[in-house]
């Protein structure tokens, strides 16, 4: 018998396993950041923001762009791409472990399925928060002098985090239900592209009832619309609050579905099939 160190007793049930989600979050964050995947994604993200911010600041065709618009353009790219990166990380979280054969060992521990999901959610959100932190110097350099730096930083943190939370939860659901990691990643990217599509609607169509509804129902489109309305059009933060319903509702609903369904869908086979 083991006598050299403390072990989990054969008969007693240790109390700490309820903090298993924190242990999983810590392990996944270490793998993401110390393993090199997170830093590489951040380098790509920063290169993209560098290009966008430099073009916004220099392009003669856009020269009539006011600074607020330049900040808004950079912020929109930062938010959309940051959320995409977090979504892709979430899409890999469960299906990836399943494919690498490491999920079974995790599920055999006393940590609940909800705990496993919560840990992975925290790790994926850490990627969004890192993206947000990387966007700060760009927002500062473009927005200083017109008093929009603080506004844009707070907007991106609040709205970006709500949007990222909702989409990370959607990504985890997709990951749990997908047969393969490739299918999970492809479906998640498709979801984000589909959600970004209404932002490209022609102005005329966007102003129709259908176009308006499409933007309001879409968590990404409505979040970007709200940011533009506050930052560029100078509308008060409360005037277009209804546009925040979609990202907030997505986060709440997807979170509730995960909470209820996690014990059944976080299994060895996709969606509880095995």
């Amino acid at each position: 018998m083991m006598s050299t160190a403390a072990t989990a007793d054969r008969t007693a049930r240790p109390a700490l396993s309820r903090h298993g989600w924190l242990v999983i979050a810590g392990r996944d964050c270490r793998e993401l950041w110390a393993g090199g995947r997170g830093p590489v994604l951040l380098v790509g993200y920063s290169v993209l923001l560098s290009c966008v911010s430099y073009l916004a600041a220099t392009n003669q065709v856009l020269n009539f762009l006011e600074q607020r618009e330049a900040v808004n353009l950079t912020l929109q790219v930062a938010l959309a791409v940051g959320v995409l990166v977090a979504l892709v990380c979430a899409a890999d979280a469960i299906s990836g472990e399943r494919e690498r054969g490491t999920l079974e060992a995790l599920l055999l521990t006393p940590v609940s399925r909800r705990g496993v999901v919560a840990g992975k959610l925290v790790a994926a959100l850490s990627l969004w928060l890192a993206c947000w932190a990387v966007s700060l110097p760009y927002l500062w350099v473009l927005g200083r002098g017109v008093a929009v730096v603080a506004e844009s930083v707070l907007l991106s943190l609040g709205i970006g985090t709500a949007t990222a939370l909702g989409l990370v939860e959607v990504g985890l659901l997709i990951s749990a239900l997908s047969d393969s990691n490739r299918a999970s990643l492809a479906l998640s990217v498709f979801v984000l592209i589909a959600l970004s599509a209404p932002t490209q609607l022609p102005t005329g169509l966007a102003n129709t009832a259908v176009g308006g509804a499409l933007i309001r129902l879409n968590p990404v489109g409505s979040a970007l619309h709200y940011v533009s309305a506050v930052l560029v059009r100078g509308r008060g933060a409360s005037r277009d609050l209804s546009y925040l319903a979609a990202p907030v509702l997505t986060a709440v609903l997807a979170g509730a579905v995960l909470l209820v369904a996690a014990p059944r869908i976080v299994t060895l086979g996709a969606g509880g099939r095995r």
Binding site: A8, S17, V23, R27, E97, G101, E104
Partner: peptide, 27 residues
């Protein structure tokens, strides 16, 4: 349990791996 075809995180050390699972069991 030692499942069939178990996977392992390649970058973790053996000690880190066992520490992680020990903590999942409440240690």
């Amino acid at each position: 349990v030692l499942p069939e075809s178990a996977g392992y995180p390649p970058r973790q050390s053996a000690a880190e791996y066992l520490r992680f699972f020990g903590r999942l069991y409440g240690l």
